[in-house]
Design a protein around this nucleic acid. Structure first.
Length: 593
RNA sequence: GCCCCCGUCGUCUAGCGGCCUAGGACGCCGCCCUCUCACGGCGGUAGCGGCGGUUCGAAUCCGCUCGGGGGUACCA
């Protein structure tokens, strides 16, 4: 792919209008790959953007072909993409100087600290970052803590921790600062205030004194009568005194948007092409507690922070018209929008912590998933890199990133595939890395001391080749190697393994093996195997290897599934191996010398 | 209820009107390797939701239908 196509992405959605204004462009060339044109149900007046003051400087096209003109048409528009580059080098656009033609890409992720960090946050961050890095732009982390009821203090730090763990680093944020600080909405209350006042003064917003009880009642009634729900505007045009005489009144008002008859309902989405969204309700933008709602805060902050591309979940499509209205009213340039598909539970519902442990970002590290595996996996959801390969890293994704490769279908979060990918990355780890990443799991399960001893470390290092291909998740490691670390007094053969392997007939096998091992001089895997084989296979008891090893494995490892026998015995050491073999032989009822 | 978005193997995806007898990956099944379990190798299983239309030709374009999802908050 020609990297020079890149700048195409820099353009806001509106860019397509430029295409269309260009004469002699065949309509077909503008068609996107998915045909776009999500069916509009009703004939409407040609969708338009309402001209906010000084917003759209581009030629308006009255042409009927509107829905075609979307879809950032595929990867084949090299020539045109290049033409679009004119002016991109004029330096970064300053947010308080809207209308600058040139702008460097600025994207953001905006988690709200309401509990454990959500996978969706990582998913959105990944795509935002991949795009930002490709474009040489910035990635901003903004904390949207306007919901005081659901706020959780430790949540913010966890967001930092998990995103850092994944290597998704932000350029600006509450912890790092930046030119547009503060990055915490609760610290920006003064910033929102003037804009609310202005909307009020210009008649785009009004005060509303209705109690939530009245609103609920109203909504229920509307539903009962099969009407679209929405605020009935009881408060419009009234003073507090006038309104107070009517029922359902509360003293502290909220501020609502006065949505016009024909708000902008269509916008071009980088992923979906032109989309139609629902007619908005008179949305509350300032709550009674003085905090802005999300809708006001995003618009104000995205504009002030110079955000050029709003990349967020599909769940926001239906509120985008509210945002468009706000941008227009405030006279601000609209950013480009990209609505990502929603991650799903197995039952296809939006991924949730309740139905899916994987919705909690902290879960992955606990389970022994590697960050590189999770990141790769997230990049596989709703997306594919040009070559179609399954295994790729962030750099690869970022270099080749293209909005047209993002799917519109919400992917199910498939843990099986993640586990496979994780196993792949586990196997690729160097021995030293494998040890480093494994240690916490061994320590947590009590097999290795918090401050590992020399001997413990030596054993851990030595066991690597025997176990690295045998775990998909690091959390599987402790049970596999427990027999190597457990204090001798605590060692036991699992019941199922004992029942099957430590039979009376196998007593002599164990004794013969122990006897042979006594004579081993150099305690290595090959020497161990030679001794055991000599005693039990053809030259000795004449057993088949699988028969012969079964009791030995149970005796030494305590279970039916373990690393290869020779390596297990070599790692365990002479003393412990012999003791366990003799003890097992005794348990089989054979002679103990 | 109302509104919007979406529909290719069980799952993640490729597909941009002929290259499709629909490709890859995970999973699953079988075989090989093999001391168990893995890893690795080889092979197999399974899909364009349905119906119409446009076209010489449709997984690809259009319509309807069915299905799934999301929104409908002084949550984000």
């Amino acid at each position: 792919m020609d990297p020079r196509q890149g700048p195409r992405h820099v353009l806001p959605a509106r860019a397509v209008d430029r295409d269309r204004a260009r004469p002699g462009q065949p309509a077909g060339a503008l068609r996107g790959r998915r045909g776009a044109a999500p069916g509009r149900q009703h004939p409407r007046p040609a969708p338009r953007r309402p001209d906010g003051p000084g917003v759209h400087h581009l030629v308006h096209d009255p042409a009927p072909r509107r829905r075609r003109a979307d879809r950032h048409a595929g990867r084949r528009r090299t020539a045109r993409a290049r033409q679009h580059r004119r002016g991109v080098d004029r330096g970064p656009r300053h947010p308080v100087e809207p209308g600058g033609a040139a702008m460097s890409v600025r994207v953001r992720v905006a988690p709200s600290p309401t509990g454990d960090p959500h996978v969706g946050t990582a998913y959105m961050s990944l795509f935002n970052l991949a795009f930002a890095r490709q474009q040489g732009g910035q990635f901003v982390l903004r904390v949207e803590d306007t919901d005081r009821a659901r706020f959780q203090a430790d949540s913010e730090q966890q967001v930092y921790d998990t995103l850092s763990w994944l290597g998704l680093d932000w350029d600006e944020g509450p912890d790092k600062g930046g030119p547009y600080a503060p990055y915490r909405q609760s610290e920006r209350l003064d910033t929102y205030k003037p804009h609310v006042d202005r909307l009020l003064a210009e008649g785009h917003a009004y005060l509303c004194w209705c109690t939530s009880a009245r609103l609920t009642e109203m909504r229920e009634d509307q539903q009962k009568r099969k009407l679209p729900t929405g605020y009935d505007r009881l408060c419009v045009g009234k003073t507090a005194e006038q309104r107070a005489e009517l029922p359902g009144y509360q003293e502290t008002p909220v501020v609502r948007m006065l949505v016009p008859e024909d708000p902008p309902l269509h916008f071009v989405d980088l992923i979906r092409g032109e989309v139609a969204a629902p007619h908005p309700d008179d949305q509350v933008i300032l709550k009674a507690d003085g905090f802005p709602t999300y809708h006001l805060a995003v618009v104000v902050d995205d504009h002030l922070m110079g955000i050029t591309h709003v990349v967020r979940g599909e769940e926001w499509i239906s509120s985008t018209p509210k945002h468009l209205l706000l941008f227009d009213w405030l006279g601000w340039e609209r950013p480009a929008f990209a609505h990502m598909p929603l991650l799903r539970n197995v039952d296809k519902s939006k991924i949730s912590k309740r139905k899916n442990p994987a919705a909690r970002l902290t879960w992955f590290a606990e389970q022994g998933y590697l960050p590189e595996a999770l990141l790769n996996f997230l990049g596989l959801l709703g997306y594919s890199v040009p070559g179609g390969e399954e295994v790729f890293d962030f750099a690869r994704m970022s270099e080749t990133f293209d909005w047209s490769r993002v799917n519109t279908v919400g992917p199910v979060f498939d843990l099986d595939k993640l586990a496979w990918l994780n196993g792949h990355y586990v196997r690729e780890l160097s021995a030293a890395d494998f040890v480093e990443r494994s240690l916490p799991f061994l320590q947590r399960s009590g097999l290795v001391s918090p401050m590992p001893t020399e001997a413990e470390l030596a054993l851990v290092n030595a066991m690597v080749p025997a176990v690295q291909t045998r775990v998909a998740l690091l959390s599987e490691l402790p049970e596999l190697v427990r027999f190597l670390f457990v204090p001798e007094a605590d060692f036991e053969v699992e019941e199922a393994a004992a029942a099957k392997a430590l039979t009376e007939a196998n007593g002599p096998v164990l004794t013969a093996a122990a006897d042979a091992l006594e004579g081993v001089v150099e305690w290595t895997a090959p020497a161990v195997q030679a001794a055991v084989d000599g005693a039990l296979l053809e030259g000795g008891l004449g057993l088949k290897r699988n028969k012969a090893y079964l009791p030995l494995r149970a005796a030494v490892c305590g279970r039916a599934i373990a690393p290869p026998l020779d390596e297990s015995i070599a790692l365990l050491g002479r003393e412990r191996s012999l003791r366990r073999l003799r003890a097992a032989a005794a348990a089989c009822g054979s002679d103990v010398r």
